[in-house]
Structure formats: C-alpha cells, structure tokens
Amino acid sequence: MSWRTELSRAAALAWKDLTAERRTKANFNSVVFLAGMILLLFGFAFGPDANALRAAAAGVLWLTVLFSGVLAFNRSYQLELDGGALEQLLLYPGSRKTIFLGKLAANLAFVLLVEAILVPLAAVLYDLPLAKPFPGLAGVLLLGTFGFVTLGTFYAAMASRVRAREVLLPLLLFPMLVPVVVASVEATSAILAGDPMGDAGAWLRLLVVFDAIFFTASLLAFEHVIDE
C-alpha cells in the first residue's frame, strides 16, 4: 500500500476511536473526574500556603496527567478486545505500524483534550499565572504529552492480551516514563517561574530527543507486540 493509503488507514482508526469516545464519553468523564480529584487532593495535602502550591504545581500537574492517561490507554485497546475486534483489525492488509499511528493519534487527541480542562483547573487551584507563560507551557505540554502517549500506546498494546492488563500497564509504563516526566516537570517549573535561569530550552530539547527515540523504537517494535 502507498504511504497515502496507510495514512488514510491511520486516520480511519483514530476517527473510529474518537467517534466511539464522543458517543459514550464514558472514558472522558471518568478521566476528567479522576484528574480533578487528584489535583484537589494534592492541593489539600500541600495546605493553604500559596508558595508551596506554586512550587509543587508542575510535578502535581504531570503526575495527574500520567495517572489519568493510563486509564485512557487501557480503554483504547479495550475497544478492540470487546467482540473480537482486535483479531479483525489484524486481518486487514497493510502495515501494523498504521495501527500504532492511528491509536497514537487518537490517544494524543484525548489526552490533550483532558489537559485543556486540567491546566486551567490547576491554574485556579494552585494560583498559577497562565497568560504570560502560555506559549512555552503549550510547547512543554505538547512535547511531554507526545512522549508519554507514545510510550503509553505502545505498552498498552503489549499489555492488551494479558488478563491483568490494568495492573500490568502502569508497572511497565511508569519506569520508562521517568526521563519524560523529569524533563517535562523541570521545563514546566522553569516556564511557570518565568525561566530566570534560561534552562527551559535545554529541557525542551531533551524532550525532543526523548520523543524521537521513543517514537522510533515504539513504531519499529509495535508489530512484534501486537501480533500473537
């Protein structure tokens, strides 16, 4: 198949996942609720000190994205497991990489949408200035989320055929996410503080490198994890 056809297949897969989610909203509602609760609980844990809240905000935000994103990844393959759709998906001609790209696009859109609600909520709860650092913050969110979703989509495929996949996925995924999380939290903290040391750019470049490595490795290995 030509690369245009493969892209069209990936788009069809992403459209299918997002349409199913748009109709039920089952996953979106639960993920947003969970994320809101995590933000709120961490806020209570840090107490009313505005400085402490602001200092912890970047870490809390990324941990919230991580915990809630895992639910989205599990759901993404659950759609395929219901009614034997995964078997049917593997019967279509074309590259397996296309399945990965389609799932990645759908998961990316989903997590970014959740973040669009989460970030303003965090700004209110943690007293964060959003207007001025918004372009930089958007860049970190995009790069960090891309790396996170790439690994999440890959490991969710690996765990999809295992009975205890809900437990297995975080066990596989979280250790691999350490570099992305550290770079994302450091870059977010620097940008929210106005980047006084000028080190946000270095963290962003590191994120680009992590994203490129994770994306390439996941794309190449996907065929081996999705086939039985």
């Binding site: 199913a20 009614g83 034997g84 759709a85 078997e87 049917q88 998906l89 019967l91 001609p93």
Partner: peptide, 16 residues
Amino acid sequence: RDLVAVLGHTPGLYGD
C-alpha cells in the same frame, strides 16, 4: 491478508 476475508467466531464490530 489482501486475499482473505474472515467471518470469525465473534463479530469483531464496534458497538458505538
């Protein structure tokens, strides 16, 4: 896979 179509045990459809 380009030459084969399968009617499986399970329908392999998307309910939503």
